[in-house]
Every structure is written in C-alpha cells, then in structure tokens.
C-alpha cells in the first residue's frame, strides 16, 4: 500500500525494514552530492530524470500491475521493441505521425493480448508464457530487420516529429516528464484508488478467493497484461524519439531493471506488496546510483557491480530485518 509509509512510522525493527530503501536513497543521495560536484546540478538531475528515470519508470509501472496480480512479465522488452519498430517503420513508410504513434502502441497492445490469451485463457504460467513470447519477439525482430540491423531516421524530415516528442517542453517541464506524470497519476489511481487495483491485488493474494468473491479473474488478468504492454509501448515510442531510430532488442535493457525496481519497491510495504510509490522509489534508486557512480568516476563495469551490491544490501537489510522480528 502506498500509504503504509506514513501509517507505520518506525516503532520497531520490523517497521524500520520498510524504510530501508528510503534510507538507502537519502544516504546515497547525500554521498553523491558531496562526492561528485556535477551530481547536484540542475542539468544533471534533469538529464537523469529525462533519460534514465522516465523510460524505465513507465515500463516498471506496468510491471507493478503484473507483479500485483501474482504474475511476471518477461516480455515487456518485446513490447518496447515492437512499439518502436512499428512506429519507426511507419514513419519511414511515410505514415502520418499520429497514425504511426497509434500503430506503435497498437503493436505493443498485441503483445500484451498474446500474453493475456496464454495466461488468462490457456492458463500457462506467466513465467513460461512471457518467456515464450520473448523468444518469439526476438525472432520477429531479427526477421524484420535482416538479423538485427537498426533503422535510423536521422534526416531532417523526421527531426520535427521526434523533437516534438522527446525535446519539447510545456511550462518548463520536458514532454517525457509530463508523460511520466500522467502515467504515474493514472496508474496510482487505478492501483490504489479504484476497484480495479483492489481486485488485481486480491488475485495476486489468492486467485481462488478472488474467483469465489465474484471477481472476473480472466478478464482482469487480460487487462493487466495489456496495460503492462501498452505502458512498455509508450516507453518504446519515447525511446525511438530520443535515439531517432529503432535498435532491435534494445527493450531487453529495461526488463531486469523494471522487475528489480518493482520488487525493491515492495520492501516499503509491510505486506511486501508492490505499489506505485515503491516502484518509483526503486526506479529512482537504480537511476540515481547509475548516474552517481558514473559521476564519481567508476567505469561501466564497476557501476554494474556497485548497483548489484547496493540492491543486494537494500534487500538484505529489508528482508533480514523483517525476518528477525
């Protein structure tokens, strides 16, 4: 629950375990702020937000729903890629931008629909279903691109469209950030304030109870996997606009981070339940650490080690404290 933070201020060690991520976040923020001069500049924070946080966060929001429903989605990367592939191909074929955009999101939706059919109708375990879709998605991309050739749209004709998506701003806030804000608001309401979210969480807690309580489990699961895919599709569009191209298999980069962020986010709830706030915190933590380690001069390899150790430490703190209550 998103409010568990304010409801349960730390009275004991168990409650403290819910704050492990927050403490780590604040602590590391201070470390980076003092150790790296460039860290606390407006330009850097803006860069982290627009380039690291937004893309990952939108994917992770979708994963949050899937994990809430008791499942997992290994194919979010495919949704990112398919949206990007169709969007960029449509533009290259001279299709109008809004239409191309819709087609891109539609492609992601189809990936979600495929997952939904496999999971909600054919009752395949989410792990296997989405793993299968991931394999198929990779094949489709290789076939569509002659083995993985990127599609670049660097000519001036496209700059306007791409800039409108990724470089414009409204009221001083970059458009991608607006997109994120809208997504966060919508998903927060859906998960924490609407019947939909409560029902999804009930399915995650105990599918049998949900079914016996009159919840239409298959259609809820269908909505969840489609939602996750479409959110990932939004990231796919933003990503294509940012890099002005489609790069095959680039969506996979988000997969493990999005799952990681979601599960890191569960540690802020006593019931270890995914929440929008928790996921955002997880995303922010991962993005900040990547950026901070870079700025204090760690090379790419050590950054990876650092992130792993950090995530490990946060989890150990959170789970370890809860366990010894």
């Amino acid at each position: 629950m998103s409010l568990s933070l304010s409801r349960h201020l730390p009275k004991d060690r168990e409650s403290f375990s819910t704050l492990a991520v927050l403490v780590a976040f604040v602590g590391l923020f201070l470390v980076f702020a003092t150790q790296a001069d460039a860290f606390l500049t407006l330009g850097n924070l803006r860069n982290v937000l627009v380039n690291n946080v937004v893309l990952l966060a939108i994917v992770a929001l979708g994963v949050t729903f899937v994990v809430s429903s008791g499942g997992i989605d290994l194919s979010v990367g495919v949704s990112v890629d398919m949206a990007s592939l169709v969007f960029v191909s449509a533009l290259a074929a001279g299709v109008a931008a809004p239409l191309g955009l819709a087609a891109g999101l539609g492609a992601a939706l189809l990936v979600g629909l495929l997952n939904a059919i496999l999971i909600a109708r054919l009752k395949i375990s989410p792990f296997l279903a989405t793993l299968g879709v991931l394999f198929i998605g990779q094949s489709v991309q290789r076939l569509a691109t002659g083995g993985g050739q990127p599609i670049y749209l660097v000519t001036k004709d496209y700059a306007e469209i791409f800039n409108a998506i990724s470089r414009s701003s409204l009221l001083g806030v970059p458009t991608p950030v607006w997109v994120l804000i809208l997504c966060v608001l919508a998903t927060w309401l859906a998960l924490h304030r609407m019947g939909f979210g409560r029902q999804v969480q009930a399915i995650g807690a105990r599918p049998g109870v949900a079914w016996y309580s009159g919840i239409r489990v298959p259609s809820r699961l269908t909505q969840v996997y489609i939602l996750a895919a479409v959110l990932a599709g939004i990231t796919g569009i933003l990503l294509s606009a940012t890099v002005r191209s489609y790069v095959p298999m680039s969506g996979n980069a988000f997969l493990l981070d999005a799952i990681g962020a979601t599960f890191i986010g569960t540690t802020i709830s006593r019931e270890r339940r995914p929440s929008i706030l928790g996921t955002l915190l997880g995303v922010a933590l991962l993005a900040m650490v990547k950026n901070g380690l870079l700025l204090i001069g760690w090379n790419f390899y050590w950054q990876q080690v650092g992130i792993g150790v950090l995530v490990f430490a946060v989890l150990a703190l959170s789970f370890g404290l809860q366990r010894r209550h």
């Binding site: 997992i72 493990l256 799952i259 599960f263 990876q304 080690v305 992130i307 792993g308 490990f312 989890l315």
Partner: peptide, 13 residues
C-alpha cells in the same frame, strides 16, 4: 528472483 538478479549484476560486473 531478487537475490539472484542482484548477484547477476555483481557477477557480470
């Protein structure tokens, strides 16, 4: 899932 995700990063790094 989480523990080995973290160690995967560490080990790969």
């Amino acid at each position: 899932l989480l523990a080995t995700l973290a160690s995967m990063n560490i080990v790969a790094g």
